[in-house]
């Protein structure tokens, strides 16, 4: 049945491949143009292939915005948030999913609402309060805020995972005299590792990509994350063509690195979750 429409079969594939190329096209053009010198860009235009590898534009941009510092800030903030948010989510979910404390449904609804809340509805009081306690324009302020925001989602997800945790395993551990604290770390955590890993990855990437609150909170150059630094530069409309491309390439590279590294964790995590 399919054989009779052999050309049609390839037409569909062709259409899908063309679409994929359209999706990837901006990445390729950016990579090409980041490797051109300003004069080459001016004379050959944006569509020509680069004549050679001109790295000076990227190096200049790196030094000009102190990109290493921005990367460090992003790693410190996203890494701290990922670890802390998984930890707090785990405590919450231990109480809600396994401890089944009273009123847990209400607590869950509260966390779910927190997750859907627009950050605009929190930003000004947070801005005001952080100034009062001397945390404004610090990475710590952003770490605390996003730990809570990510925890809202983590609690919701982990509670539902842990509420189906096999009770006989918990009971066996308790019979052996393990305290609640020991049960959490020696039984629950090891057995939920795939889910925790997925959460860790999500929180890291989500926090890395956050823009609005870091934009408001991190005003000094030394504290800015990669997206904030790039977004502010773009917003000022001060970049020429080659600088735009150099900065875009520097922003794309970490994202693609995460994509490749975490792809494995995610696929593994998701399949493990599916078999549960």
């Amino acid at each position: 049945m399919a054989r009779r429409r052999e050309p049609a079969k390839y037409l569909v594939l062709l259409a899908l491949v063309v679409l994929a190329l359209m999706m990837l096209f901006p990445f390729v053009v950016v990579a090409f143009n980041a490797l051109k010198s300003p004069s080459e860009y001016a004379s050959n235009g944006p569509l020509a292939l680069p004549e050679g590898v001109y790295l000076q534009g990227i190096i200049d941009f790196w030094n000009r915005v102190d990109f290493g510092q921005k990367l460090l800030n992003s790693i410190v903030i996203s890494g701290s948030v990922a670890v802390l948010a998984v930890l707090v989510s785990l405590f919450n979910a231990y109480a809600l999913g396994i401890g089944r404390v009273r009123g847990r449904l209400w607590v869950l609804v509260l966390f779910l609402l927190a997750f859907t809340l627009p950050q605009e509805a929190l930003v000004y009081p947070l801005y005001y309060l952080s100034k009062q306690v001397g945390l404004y324009d610090t990475r710590l302020a952003v770490i605390i805020i996003f730990t809570v925001i990510q925890t809202a989602f983590g609690t919701y997800l982990l509670s539902s995972v842990l509420s189906s945790f096999p009770p006989e395993i918990l009971e066996a551990a308790r019979m052996d005299g393990a305290s609640r604290w020991q049960v959490l770390w020696r039984v629950v955590v090891p057995l939920s590792r795939p889910t925790l890993a997925v959460l860790l990855v999500f929180f890291f990437i989500w926090t890395w990509n956050e823009f609005f609150l870091p934009l408001v909170f991190l005003i000094s150059n030394d504290n800015q994350t990669v997206p904030v630094a790039l977004g502010v530069l773009q917003g000022q409309r001060l970049m020429d063509a080659t600088m735009s491309n150099a900065s875009a390439l520097l922003g794309i590279i970490p994202a693609i690195v995460f994509f490749l590294i975490f792809q494995r964790t995610l696929t593994r995590g998701i399949t493990v979750g599916a078999t549960k």
């Binding site: 707090v88 989510s89 405590f91 919450n92 231990y94 109480a95 809600l96 396994i98 401890g99 089944r100 404390v101 009273r102 607590v107 509260l110 966390f111 927190a114 809340l117 509805a121 929190l122 009081p125 947070l126 309060l129 605390i144 805020i145 730990t147 809570v148 925001i149 925890t151 809202a152 609690t155 609640r180 959490l184």
Partner: peptide, 23 residues
Amino acid sequence: SGPYLVYLVPGLVLFVGVILLPF
């Protein structure tokens, strides 16, 4: 379930300070 409430304390304190109060 009583003793488990302790585990909710950090999460709830942070929630009140960063979400509920600002909201």
